[in-house]
Design a binder for these strands. Structure first.
Length: 178
DNA sequence: CCCTGATTCGC
DNA sequence: GCGAATCAGG
């Protein structure tokens, strides 16, 4: 299977969010091995995550599983995200659906990492780790990772300083509480 | 044995 | 570029 932008986004998100390679592989679908994930992660230049082997790495002060910092999703060309793209979470792995991803029940089911695809909005709702952490899930603005509403938050054209809106930026979901 | 990530190397 | 095989530690 090819490494599409979507799959790479999931990989980055999981990797930076602290998921293990195995967990990420599982998210990516059956038949995806952790080796594939690790291999790709390295090729992407990601990396630097505490490895059991490299654990006693001398200078290695603390593993510092610092919370994710940067974009999980690539920015569409020509636009610079005003706010950093939200990062997907770690540790909210959901039980693998016994049945296919197929339309989740009519219920207002949470949109989990497993549901992500190129057609739904990946804006995180709530806090990673919380039981109810999920994603927006509304249809995306064509060629963007988010729906129109969230694209408006994530992508804002750079205005001349003068005209810039000085109000505080909208609170981004998934960020540490103050 | 189970897990972890890192590395190598034939494809 | 990809990932199975392998390595090496927890």
């Amino acid at each position: 299977m090819a490494w599409t932008e979507e799959r790479i986004a999931v990989l980055k998100a999981g990797w930076e969010g602290g998921m293990t390679a195995s967990q990420i592989a599982e998210q990516l679908g059956e038949g995806v091995t952790r080796n594939a994930v690790i291999g790709k992660a390295h090729r992407l230049g990601l990396e630097a995550r505490p490895s059991p082997v490299k654990a006693g790495d001398e200078t290695a002060a603390s593993p510092a599983l610092a919370l994710p910092s940067t974009a999980a999703v690539t920015s569409p060309p020509g636009l610079s995200p005003a706010a950093p793209a939200p990062v997907l979470a770690a540790n909210h792995v959901v039980a693998k659906p016994a049945t296919k991803p197929a339309r989740r029940a009519g219920k207002a089911a949470r949109v989990t990492l497993l549901d992500l695809n190129e057609k739904i909005c990946k804006w995180p709702i709530g806090h990673p780790g919380d039981a109810d952490f999920h994603f927006c899930g509304k249809p995306v603005q064509a060629n963007f990772p988010y729906c129109s509403e969230h694209c408006a938050i994530a992508y804002q054209a750079q205005l001349p300083r003068r005209d810039r809106d000085r109000r505080p930026p909208p609170q981004m979901p998934g960020m540490p509480r103050r």
